[in-house]
Design a protein around this nucleic acid. Structure first.
Lengths: 111, 111
DNA sequence: TATAGTACCTCGGCTGTCAAGGTATTGTGT
DNA sequence: ACACAATACCTTGACAGCCGAGGTACTATA
């Protein structure tokens, strides 16, 4: 049913960092990977993705390099930095709290 | 530790609807109630709150009326409408999906 | 030779959050 | 009597993130 990524605003960066923690990747592939893992639930738009890459790189949480493609379109690969790893750890802890808080405020409570 | 409400963007309206589903309430009190229930984790700012009220009322998800206060400052009460109830049901279902999706994308997986 | 796919990117509009400011009333301490 | 905090409402303007729309360039396929 393809949820809007706007609902997850603030976690776009975290999701990217998480995927990069499995290994370097390039934008186009990363987008498809996210759609795949979420079973189509999250389609991160290209504009959103590239905005996030700029943001993350400016913050020093990722770095990028051009792949040496002799065939096919050139690819820019992204890698998570140590700072990015720390950020990811914080984000994951944060998410647990957020989840609990939303449960308190927002889910059905027992009778 | 007071998480930023920006993380929850898109669920502000839902949280308000949920609280109103317990009974009519007015803005100031609702804000304090949310802080209380979330154990201080979510402090919805007044500007955010009132913006949301306008939005929800324009959408027909809540309606408002002035309380007849003979003492104290005047209060504008808000009530959830049938449309708001439906919206709330959808939002809660949506949240379950979102939560699962973020688990897939974002939490630690088994080795 | 045209179309679809890969792969990159930017711009501008839209929406939600919130700091900062405002008004008016009531209760409390000195 | 007077200041101050608390209650209770509200608006404005800046800012940030999402994404539709558009663009470039190359490769594979029908």
């Amino acid at each position: 049913m393809a949820l809007s990524a706007d609902i997850l605003r603030g976690y776009t960066d975290s999701i990217i960092l998480k995927q990069l923690s499995h290994g370097d990747n390039y934008g186009y592939e990363l987008g498809k990977q996210i759609a795949l893992i979420s079973q189509g639930g999250l389609e991160m738009k290209e504009a959103t993705l590239y905005t996030a890459f700029r943001r993350l790189e400016a913050a020093g949480h990722i770095r990028s390099y051009w792949g040496d493609a002799q065939a096919g379109a050139r690819r820019r690969y992204y890698a998570i930095t140590p700072e990015g790893q720390e950020r990811l750890q914080r984000d994951m802890a944060n998410w647990q709290e957020t989840k609990q808080m939303l449960s308190l405020l927002f889910e059905e409570e027992e009778k």
